[in-house]
Amino acid sequence: MRHGRRRITWKGTALVVGAVTAGCALVTYLPQDDAVDAPFIVEGEVGQPLDLTYAELTVTEVRVADVLTSPAEAAAAAGTFLVVDATWRATQGETTFSGAEVTDEQGRRFWPSSRGGCSTSASAQPGYAWRTTYCFDVPRDALEGATVRLARGDQTEEHGGQRRDAVAVVDLGITASEADALWKAAETVSPEAPGYPPASAGGSEG
């Protein structure tokens, strides 16, 4: 049996300091965020329905506009507005889709504008499709190869709200030649208010 106080030894001190140092090194240098927090990316293209588990998403159309008009205002773009029409269909429960972002080939990120009656988020329940129009004010060199990233989690704090969750990344299909043509075109777009998609043969009116 030991008596008295334990002595602090060089060996024990080195063990503790080494363990702490090793722990700090692991946390600092290992790609922990990529391994633990990475979202589940579902890639697709315009017109393709994407299954995000909590919703089905389709980017239905992509346009550009110099000016957005709504009953409340006419908004001119600093660059050009990339207008993305999407349709959400929730599959589990009432869901708010907070994440919307355009990324260009250089990795620059552009968040949606609420000007001109555009939406920056959407909310829907299971049982119906919900059309939403997002508008992104982007410079000329951001058009080519741009993708739109849509999810229920928001993109603030380096996509913090999208950790371990499904995220759609849709290639907008804009080539270099198309980018030039889109930039030169002077278009005015009036975004439709969020709502049900246009009725077709299946709908009935009361």
Partner: peptide
């Protein structure tokens, strides 16, 4: 139901395509 009754204060609501 096949149709929705007219709302009290707003325009008639159609059943959207792809819904019941």
């Amino acid at each position: 139901v096949e149709r929705l009754p007219p709302p009290l204060y707003s325009d008639p609501v159609a059943i959207p395509d792809g819904s019941v």
